[in-house]
Amino acid sequence: MANSYYDPADLRKFGKITEWSEEIGNKFFDYYGKVFEEGALSAREKSLIALAVAHVVKCPYCIDAYTKDGLQRGITKEEMMEAVHAGAAIESGATLVHGVQMMNKYNKLSM
């Protein structure tokens, strides 16, 4: 048992989750694989979306995986950083838009 919560070596064991629940584990990986195929969006575009979301959900495994995936697809570091900013902007916007709620409440409670 590792003495830390995250171990980079655990990423390559991800597939093993099917061992304890084969059917739904396989369904997840089938779904996952299908999602990232070429479609109305290119696999390249989806890789950048995944990288942005990886940062927003703060998943270190996903950040490793989609940085590498981006490199494999020839995505540049400038494109990757812009994707991260897109995720960060939505995340900070999501915080800030609650400021309107604060303002509403403030105004309601104030004479």
Binding site: S42, A43, R44, K68, D69, L71, Q72, R73, G74
Partner: peptide, 20 residues
């Protein structure tokens, strides 16, 4: 000929060709 500039494998050849 494209080969990765680092410790990763090349992506899909057809997609890379399109981008290049």
């Amino acid at each position: 000929v494209y080969n990765p500039s680092g410790a990763y494998l090349p992506g899909d050849q057809a997609a890379l060709e399109r981008d290049f």
